[in-house]
Nucleic acid binder design. Structure first.
Length: 597
RNA sequence: GGGGGAGUAGCUCAAUUGGUUAGAGUACCACCCUGUCACGGUGGAUGUUGCGGGUUCGAGUCCCGUCUCUCUCGCCA
């Protein structure tokens, strides 16, 4: 036993009554009754009530009893009298009568309260992150994170995977996000880059014959933040397997999430196998490649029904190659007019020219457009959308891409407003069959739509003989409740297929050799078929902790501007450091002006 | 880079159409209180209303600019 404690603050029970103990922790709260003082003493393990007689010397000696001061108490454990037991505390049947006290760490006044889960400004919380982490909510989240990672490791190792460390200082990769660069002192003018992901290294480990790789891998991307996307750095469970096909890999990952979610949530969750939705179906039905399957709403194509109809706006849209999609919304006929107007406004804010609707009340058909349509068309719409009396159907008409984008915004909004999304459910799915290529909106040229290193379905044959835009890749995402947990792919391990794929995207062999020489060279020396995935650790914990923002599950997160307000990063460095690195700082005009002010 | 929201005491918020000395709860300080566990009671201290400018007899409130935080589109294979 250390000099500081015989027990933790979460440990004492009736069985310890009569013992002399020593506890150390933070003063969580003080209740001073004049003749008796109660202190809740808190540590990582819990709270214990300490009772102090104000006549004690040590009480007189301490000038003030400020919360969050770190103290230790020695004293006797006593059973609490009937009626003074606190059932809310695990230690609530006993209390410690203090006989001695020592102040171990004094505390200034707190910038926000620790004992309560009060709201506090994000900037203050981040500046005093060590205090925020003392509070129950964040403290629990970070412990959960540790346990989730431990369970992930346990599962992966049980499945025969080995964990590897890959370099943090590596080469800038030309694809993907912006790199964080690290200047080289020994090589003037040259830079390392922090890895966006250990992508090439894990593939090289497959070429090296390690068969099953994983790593709880830090990844660095210099891109802007979102509520579910940490700027700067994040962690993923990086996985790669050899001699594997898509189905086998899915089974491993489904098992991973089953292991983690069955351990860390009491909520419902999808049991393997998870549904698989082809990318094009997902876009057509949900307008999104990360649909929230808890939301029952989806789009139905009704273009053919409106083709040549009396409503010129829709007929014209179909004639021009556009699409008309219907969203059936159950049992909203009783909603006030404002509900429909607000939804139309919302659609317009998201790029729609307008949004039509039909409501079947049971006795009538309410709609701004029904007067332009024959009763037969209205009936066909009702049948096609499987609408019942009391239901409404919204219609979006525009170019296919735009309709899908607007639908992708409207569907979640309707789900939220109508309470269609069960907060006590996790719904997983795979999005599969991503297209290998797409046309660039600006240039019209063919480019890789996702990962240039994924294997085209059909291999060399399809590259040679198919329309590139029809080629699908063994490229997949795993999605839970509308959050993309990971992308992954069965990789292209064949140099000949790699060169051909890049050729279709407009790069000749020398470019491939130049940019990805290391990996291509490895593939020329006997590469096994392999594939992988990299589920986000932060996002997984965020789901399990039921937190709306990823910062709540990261011990020391950046703010949205990628700053660490506690450590003051990023910061300027000394001229000497810059000289050693052969760097000169040239500020943009705006910052220059700010600095000279 | 674009768009939305927010900014009043350490914190959470209030302050009628522009009108007296900007209030309340909490935290903080002092005192009272022997069974509380969100203890209670009395009193006290605490404000560049983010910052700058403008309109006005008068601005927390209206206008312009700017900064900060946040959500989002772009971006993130």
């Amino acid at each position: 036993m250390s000099q500081y404690r015989t027990h933790t603050c979460g440990q004492l029970r009736k069985s310890e009554v009569g013992q002399t103990v020593k506890l150390s922790g933070w003063i969580h709260s003080v209740r001073d009754h004049g003749g008796v003082i109660f202190i809740d003493l808190r540590d990582h393990y819990g709270l214990t009530q300490v009772v102090i007689d104000p006549e004690r010397d040590f009480y007189q000696a301490l000038e003030r009893w400020r919360v969050e001061t770190v103290v230790s108490f020695a004293g006797k454990v006593v059973a609490r009298a009937e009626g003074t037991i606190n059932p809310k505390l695990a230690t609530g049947e006993v209390e410690v009568v203090a006989e001695a006290m020592e102040v171990l760490g004094e505390a200034e006044v707190m910038p926000f309260q620790i004992a309560k889960d009060d709201a506090a400004p994000e900037a203050t919380r981040l500046k005093y992150r060590f205090l925020d982490l003392r509070r129950e909510r964040l403290h629990k989240n970070i412990v959960l994170r540790s346990q989730v990672i431990a369970e992930m490791r346990r599962y992966m190792i049980a499945q025969g995977f080995h964990e590897f460390q890959t370099p943090i200082l590596t080469a800038s990769s030309p694809e993907g996000a912006r790199d964080y660069l690290v200047p080289s002192r020994l090589h003037p003018g040259k830079f390392y880059a922090l890895p966006q992901a250990p992508q090439q290294f894990k593939q090289l480990l497959m070429v090296a014959g390690f068969d099953r790789y994983f790593q709880v891998a830090p990844c660095f991307r210099d891109e802007d933040a979102r509520a579910d996307r940490s700027p700067g750095e994040f962690y993923q469970l990086d996985v790669e397997m050899s001699f594997v096909d898509q189905d086998e890999l899915f089974a491993i990952i489904e098992g991973l999430f089953e292991a983690v979610f069955s351990k860390f949530t009491a909520k419902k969750f999808t049991k393997p196998p998870f549904p698989r939705i082809p990318y094009r179906d997902a876009m057509r039905r949900f307008g999104s490649d990360k649909p929230d399957l808890r939301n029952p709403l989806e789009m139905v194509d009704v273009s053919s029904i409106f083709d040549g109809c009396g409503f010129q706006a829709f007929a014209g849209c179909v004639a021009n190659g556009g699409a008309i999609r219907a969203i059936k919304v159950p049992q909203v006929a009783g909603k006030p007019r404002k509900f429909f107007d607000d939804m139309i406004k919302f659609a317009q804010e998201n790029g729609a020219k307008g949004m039509a609707y039909i409501v079947w009340t049971g006795t009538e058909t309410k709609s701004p457009i029904v007067k332009f349509l024959t009763p037969e068309i209205v009936d066909r719409l009702k049948t096609t959308c499987q609408a019942a009396d009391g239901d409404a159907v919204f219609f979006l008409a525009d170019e296919v891409k735009l309709v899908q984008k607007i639908g992708g915004a409207v569907i979640p909004e309707l789900g939220r407003q109508l309470g269609l999304i069960d907060p006590n459910d996790f719904k997983f799915c795979w999005i599969v069959d991503f297209p290998m290529f797409e046309t660039d909106d600006e240039t019209g040229e063919i480019t890789f739509s996702h990962n240039p290193f994924s294997m085209p379905q059909g291999g060399m044959d399809v590259l040679l003989n198919s329309d590139p835009l029809d080629i699908l890749a063994y490229q997949y995402d795993i999605v839970c409740n509308g959050i993309e947990l990971s992308s992954g792919a069965i990789r292209n391990h064949r140099p000949d297929i790699m060169y051909k794929a890049f050729e279709i995207a407009g790069y000749d062999a020398s470019v491939v050799d130049d940019k990805f020489g290391g990996m291509i060279n490895a593939f020329k020396h006997g590469a096994p078929p392999h594939g992988g995935i990299a589920p986000g650790v932060d996002r997984t914990v965020m789901l399990l902790a039921d937190e709306p923002n990823i910062r709540e599950v990261i011990a020391f997160p950046f703010n949205q501007q990628a700053q660490d307000l506690m450590m003051n990063a990023p910061a300027e460095v000394t001229p000497k450091q810059l000289r050693e690195l052969h760097l000169q700082v040239v500020l943009p005009r705006k910052e220059q002006a700010n600095k000279t002010q």
